[in-house]
Nucleic acid binder design. Structure first.
Lengths: 287, 287
DNA sequence: CACAATTACGAGGGTCGTAAAAATG
DNA sequence: CATTTTTACGACCCTCGTAATTGTG
């Protein structure tokens, strides 16, 4: 039986041009490679090289063999890649979310419920999420609205309320509640990884100058150190505590309030049943 | 590195359902196969089977692997096949002819000129021959007419004259020459392997009842033992001598005279140059 | 004389088979 | 108790590397 190792050796010789160089590349002694090639020719019952005592060069038959060998080798590499990728996917739950807050609870919860699984998560636009749910990129997605579709399982997850985070010296820091337009036109700090909330900011506060921060740490430092207004939410406050020297003022616009829904494909609902049972139970509250 | 042998073993286990049966099929002890499979899983870094102490069954990942393994194995078999076929073709000259007589000389001549080559020959219709010359099935063909085409090399080879072979007792056995229609309507012996001559018989002797013989030996026996008229030709007479107790009478119809031409693709003319030089030399005569 | 391929030969590793163990229906 | 898988162990074959040979530019 012909073996992949032999084909690799043949290709190496073909590409190096000489046995010695190929042997070096293959971490093999040159005599060993010489024998291997001879054995390959024996098993194929075909001579692949022109022998000129001192030189070895592919004959037409050898060139054809190399050509096919590359295909076979490529396909075998492909096999390994695909199988490993498949296995990895079997062992991972991919979650896509429209906003960061739901992931704060969902990822740890999934980790706890499926300890042998890898949990991967990312944020994307609603469109991308739905598409990814369909094509298998995600096993579960979080949207700010319910989807009623055959083949899709949809469960209400929780809510999030947006707040302004103002320094006490701000003129509006005494207000009980505000609208988005009340601060429109000012300069505000904003995190970049906030998912679908970005749309709202663009639409309802078109005149605001946002200083967008990529990093969580940098954002928090600026919030503490500067007098610039920024955003937060009930979930963020629960998670990180009240930022020192900041006043949190709820935002009255309906767009500043989100209700999140967890969706998965109906044919994968069973695998995630433990998760859905948990978030559907009366005891469940986003912490 | 993963090897084809391991993939074959995997496929065998998948198809046999059990290690023992697969081991038997592979002419291998069952423990050895058990280890090989384990090693494959190790190298893939993936478990392929569900282990139930007593039973071994493919998991989804294993099924995927088997699927791809079959492809790789198939492609490697294909490699061997193609390479061997290519090598065989490198070492053979395939000749196609419209009639048997030219091959009597051409095949031995090619064998003598190219002693390291295998000469293969067969008879086909003119259409098939031309097609086969184009697609590489034949390196050379023999037609009863010249072809003037760019990319095709065409050389006159020789001629053949058809004769009636009559028993002395036949009413026409005294004639100096005859036409085909003179014997139309009688019962005649005919060889099956006569190439394009068949068309002529069908067209010019539509009322004749032909007793077609598949075998050369049977035909000759019947010619000797019976009083049935048959055909022969100048080339056949030169080759086999005058059949005892038969009168050979030339046939006057132009269709009973053939001029043969040897054709090859212009891009292969060089390989066959020795042959063409020979048949173009003034000394050449079909023996 | 450096470099390339082949042949010879001894050592080491890997794979095989036999034997034994564990588990199942 | 027959069947199946896995582990243990010793033997053997195969391939490797070193060394030597031959041939070339």
């Amino acid at each position: 039986m012909i073996e992949l190792g032999q084909l690799e050796q043949l290709v190496a010789v073909a590409e190096c041009g000489t046995l010695s160089k190929a042997a070096e590349q293959l971490h093999l002694s040159q005599p060993a490679l010489s024998r291997s090639i001879q054995k390959l020719e024996e098993e194929l019952q075909v001579t692949l090289f022109e022998r000129q005592k001192n030189k070895l060069s592919l004959n037409p038959c050898g060139e054809l063999t190399v050509e096919h060998a590359k295909k076979v080798i490529g396909q075998s590499r492909d096999l390994v890649e695909r199988v490993r990728a498949f296995e990895r996917r079997q062992r991972t739950v991919s979650v896509g979310s429209c906003a960061p807050a739901p992931l704060w609870d969902i990822v740890p919860l999934l980790s706890a419920l499926y300890p042998e699984m890898t949990i991967s998560s990312e944020m994307k636009s609603n469109d991308r999420l739905l598409q990814g749910l369909g094509d298998g990129t995600y096993q579960m997605i979080v949207l700010p609205e319910p989807i009623q579709q055959p083949g899709i399982h949809c469960v209400r997850y929780g809510e999030e309320q947006l707040y302004f985070s103002l320094p006490p010296a701000h003129p509006l820091s005494g207000a009980k509640a505000l609208h988005l337009k009340d601060l429109d036109g000012e300069t505000m700090l904003l995190l970049s990884q906030i998912g679908f909330w970005h749309e709202m900011h663009r639409e309802k506060m078109p005149n605001t100058h946002f200083l967008v921060q990529e990093e969580d740490f940098a954002f928090n430092e600026l919030v503490r150190a500067s007098a610039l207004p920024s955003f937060t939410s009930d979930l963020a406050i629960k998670r990180e505590g009240n930022a020192s020297n900041r006043v949190m003022i709820p935002i009255l616009d309906p767009e500043a309030h989100a209700t999140f829904y967890c969706l998965c494909r109906a044919d994968e609902e069973k695998k995630l049943s433990a998760f859905f049972r948990r978030i559907e139970s009366p005891a469940w509250k986003p912490s």
